[in-house]
């Protein structure tokens, strides 16, 4: 069952064309890893899907309904699509629990006790029950990103967007965040994941997309794209990434 349908999505910044007509269907339960060199448009693709950036052309269809450009529609769509940022973007003036509760309270208008209970469950899900009362400034990068994931999960998203969730982390903290994302994958969450962690993409994704020059250059199963790429540019990209691995 297709939950997200993207057609002809295009975006330019000034004279630079970042996305040039992306078509993409996402089925429920699919986990799509999006790879590509920096500047290939992978983050912009993600950010156009929940309208953090306004696409210049093309349509995004969620559950069979084309998303319009009115503010009210965009707000409604963003409530159904969760996003996790490279820089976490936690609210520094709120505790971990407060961060997770915020959407439930302000957007969903959930009563306080109910929102707190739900937020505690989400923090438990990412293994941070004991950090509920901590402010972001007192959390490690990995813990911050896990709180950010809990914050997105609290809104019951139909689709989760991860924009390089481990790129800002010290290497020793990457594992805990990937562990949480893997657990979500096993629960059947639908997700789009922009990442440089090829090994993780190989093990967790159901499909891998390689972007180049703002277009889908190659896609297929992880085995097809990562083990046996058909296109020269995909091969070159993978070779560069493996250059320094043991």
């Amino acid at each position: 069952m297709t939950i997200l349908h993207v057609q002809g999505l295009a975006k330019r910044f000034g004279s630079h064309e970042v996305l040039s007509g992306i078509d993409l269907d996402v089925a429920k339960g699919e986990r799509i890893a999006i790879l590509g060199a920096s500047g290939s448009g992978k983050s912009t693709l993600l950010r156009c899907i929940n309208f953090m950036e306004m696409p210049d052309a093309g349509t995004v269809t969620l559950d069979g309904k084309v998303v319009g450009r009115r503010e009210r529609e965009l707000t409604a769509v963003r409530q159904r699509i969760g996003m996790v940022f490279q820089q976490f973007n936690l609210f520094p003036h709120m505790t971990a629990l407060g961060n997770v509760m915020e959407g439930l309270r302000t957007v969903r208008r959930m009563p306080k006790a109910e929102a707190a209970a739900r937020a505690e469950r989400e923090l438990a899900r990412v293994g941070l029950s004991d950090k509920a009362a901590h402010y972001p400034a007192h959390l490690s990068g990995g813990q911050k990103q896990r709180v950010a994931i809990a914050r997105a999960l609290a809104m019951d998203p139909e689709l989760l967007l991860f924009d390089e969730p481990t790129s800002a982390l010290d290497p020793e903290l990457v594992g805990e965040v990937l562990g949480v994302i893997r657990a979500l994958a096993e629960e059947g969450c639908t997700m789009l994941l922009v990442t440089h962690e090829l090994g993780f993409a190989y093990h967790v994704a159901t499909r891998v997309i390689f972007l180049a020059d703002g277009a889908i250059h190659e896609q297929g199963t992880p085995d097809e794209v990562l083990k046996d790429p058909k296109k020269e540019r995909t091969r070159a990209f993978l070779a560069r990434h493996k250059e320094f691995s043991l």
Binding site: T75, N89, R151
Partner: peptide
């Protein structure tokens, strides 16, 4: 990023 995080949860 603070604006974006707020918008991303539907505010």
């Amino acid at each position: 990023g603070q604006w974006e995080a707020a918008r991303a949860i539907g505010m």
